[in-house]
Structure formats: structure tokens, C-alpha cells
Design a protein around this nucleic acid. Structure first.
Lengths: 210, 210
DNA sequence: ACTTGTGAAGGCTTTCACAGCC
DNA sequence: GGCTGTGAAAGCCTTCACAAGT
């Protein structure tokens, strides 16, 4: 039973919504209520949740707390993930600060940069260290995930380096295709592509910036 | 003839790869060569490109410069887009700096924040202005796109505000579902969800961060 | 009466395989 | 010989509609 990427994405949103409901004291929820909240179809939600087992009660709905627990386990969010950010430019520093605090399961525990001018600075709760100490940093801090915030040209070699030092997964912000090895999953977050997709959907007759 | 979101996403990547090829002096390319480069199938690339017209030459391939020109026009990247960032926290400042410079078609031209302590600072080439001057800022700077870098709780109202002051599209970084109006397309970039999807794909037996 | 779980249908996307053209 | 453009096939995902359960 493997979960498709599309279903996986929705399950993450279900969990988020359900947590909010649980915090608000809601005990039961129907697929229709969740659907309204997330702008999806009730059938889709039932199909998705049915993949995880018979979690609902016919005629009644789903138990919110029970679903939260099950989803948290299935999505492996019942543990925390320690991340190292590679590249302490604007984006790397922002991501470190952004994920440095409250973010529950995901915490940035270290940052490295090849530029000596950036090494030694404090960012989001840690001191930036030199790139060539990456292996030590990963070991000392028990980092499992790597965040690539390097220039496009350096993305592939930096990914390879992260693999070599034992990181288990990589989130890539560099606007560059990286070829992953199967053992170390890679997720690309390409800000420029998002902007390009948005631009295409703008109304035709829009005033331009030129 | 409307382009599906999946095809649109790939077209953006084709254009990027083709531009690099053009810069490197490549004149012709086959669907197979592009496929190898992008880890896709040649048939998929042909199907995608065929939607834009008969751009290739049978037995020969595609003209790189010609494709770049056509794709640039189709994707509406033959003009520039002026963006205003709302929320000058860590992420907002990083995005402003990141997109403030060279990024061709997309330029951040202004930033606003409700916090008086943040107003007046210089970030990535402009001075942060108060949120309640947003309408003026958008008009003066002719901003077409809005970037939401506000807390989740403020996302919907800030989107609505951007719509009201005449922005044509919004890129949302807040981890919160926003209900868009049809006239102003919304694209969500949810960093937490990306991390959650990555976590799910990690090897089962991985050491945990707990 | 109400809601889930699910087979069947429908729709969308990718791959296949080959005719058509250079 | 080589490559594109494309109908047909295959695969995947969503929606429908209803049996099953409370």
C-alpha cells in the first residue's frame, strides 16, 4: 500500500485542518465538513482516508483525535526532524530563522557556508560554520535533512556532498534540476517556476511592467 | 486551447533548459536530448510542444532559438512583472533580496509591513512602507503581483486587501488556505507541506531526531 | 436518517507505436 | 536513417452512486 504524491499532499492538509479542529475542541467530523473546509469533494476525502484503514464510523463520521493520531503516525510526523541549511545567503538565513523556532517536527539545527565572511555569524539560534566542516556538523548535530540554499550552479555537487555525509533527504531551493540517488529523496522548491506559473494565469489584458 | 497545470509546469522547465542551451550556442535539439536532460520521456515533450503549434522539423528536431522565443511569448515572459511583498519578517526580507536583483522578468519593487518598527528600513533596494499605504504603494510602483509573507492568520484578509488595491495575482507563502476570487489567481507555496512530503519519503529505518 | 467505504464510470495524463516528413 | 506529430492504448485519479453499517 503506497500513497501517491497527490494523496500524500492532501493528507498533509487534512492533518493540518484536523489539528486545528482538535484544538478548537471539535470531536467528530464528516467527510463533507472537511471537504467544505478544504474546497475538495467529500468522496475524495473518503477515498484518501480509506487507504489508511477503516477509520470512520458509518452514519456518524470520523473521530477527530483518532484521525489526527493515525495521520501523524502514517505521515511520520510523530518524531522531529533536524535540518542543516547549506548556503547562508538571504534565503538560507531566512529559512533558518523561519524554521528555527516553533515549527514542531522540523527544526534547523545548523547552517554552513563556503564564504569565510559568513562563517561565525549567529543566525536563528546557531553559529554558521564552514562548508568543509559539513560532515562534522551533521554528525555532531544529528542532522537528518539538508536544505539547499546555494546558487544553481552548485546545487548538484552540494546535494552529492550531503548524500556523502549521511543526510537522509534534501529540500532544494536552487533553481536547478538535481539528479537524486534513490536512497536520498529530493524535493524541489523552485520559486521562479512558481512565479512563472502565476504569471501565465494572469488576466490577458493586464497592464505590463515594461 | 488551454494549457493544463502539469503541462504549464513542464513548459517552464523546457524554457529554462532551452535558454541555457541557447547561451551555450546550441542551435538544434531533439525531443530525446531534452528528455535526457530533464529526466522525462521524449513523447511527453513532443506532446507538450505540439500544443503550441508545429514547432519542430521532422527528421531534424527543434530550433533552439525559435523555441525559446515561442515559449517566452506563450508563457508571457516577454515582459516584466513588478511585485510588492506584504510582510517584512525574515521570509519577506529574504524574498525581497532574492528577487530584488537580477531575476529578469520578476522584480520586487516595494515592501510593506503593519509593524511600525519595520517601516523605514531599507531592504533589497527599497524602503519598507506601512501596510495602510498599500494602495498608494501599488499605484505608485505599478505593482502587479503581491507576495504574501504574513502569518497564517492574516493570509485571507491580506489577500482580500491585495485584491482590493488592484493586484492581479498573488503568491502566498503563509501556511494557510486562502480562498481566491477568480479574477486574481493565487499560487500557494507551503514550505511546511514540502517538508512533510519529504519526511514521508525518508527511508523507514532512519535514525530519528528525538 | 445519516455517513462511510467502494466498485464502476468518467476524465485526465502519459506512453506507445507508427505514419509522415526531412 | 532520423525525428516529429498524433491516434490509440494504457495508466492514473476523481467523481458517481449505492450497498452496508450505525
Amino acid at each position: 500500500m503506497s500513497i501517491s504524491p497527490l494523496t500524500l499532499n492532501r493528507l498533509c492538509f487534512y492533518l493540518r485542518a484536523l489539528r486545528r479542529m482538535a484544538d478548537a475542541g471539535t470531536q467528530r467530523v464528516s467527510s463533507q465538513q472537511l471537504a467544505d473546509r478544504l474546497s475538495l469533494s467529500a468522496a475524495q476525502i473518503r477515498k484518501d482516508l480509506a487507504q489508511l484503514g477503516e477509520l470512520g464510523i458509518r452514519g456518524v463520521g470520523y473521530d477527530v483525535a483518532g484521525l489526527v493520531e493515525r495521520l501523524t503516525k502514517v505521515l511520520r510526523l510523530d518524531r522531529s526532524y533536524r535540518m542543516v541549511v547549506v548556503g547562508m545567503g538571504n534565503l538560507g538565513r531566512a529559512l533558518s530563522a523561519y524554521f528555527g523556532f516553533n515549527h514542531g517536527a522540523f527544526v534547523v539545527v545548523a547552517g554552513v557556508d563556503p564564504d569565510p565572511a559568513k562563517v561565525g555569524r549567529e543566525v536563528g539560534g546557531f553559529i554558521v560554520r564552514p562548508l568543509d566542516e559539513l560532515a562534522d556538523v551533521v554528525r555532531e548535530e544529528r542532522a537528518q535533512l539538508g536544505v539547499l540554499a546555494v546558487p544553481a550552479a552548485a546545487a548538484q555537487e552540494t546535494y552529492d556532498l550531503l548524500v556523502k555525509v549521511g543526510v537522509q533527504g534534501v529540500l532544494n531551493f536552487a533553481p536547478s534540476r538535481v539528479r537524486p540517488v534513490p536512497e536520498v529523496p529530493l524535493k524541489n522548491v523552485d520559486l521562479r517556476i512558481y512565479l512563472e506559473e502565476l504569471a501565465y494565469r494572469l488576466p490577458e489584458d493586464a497592464p505590463t511592467g515594461d
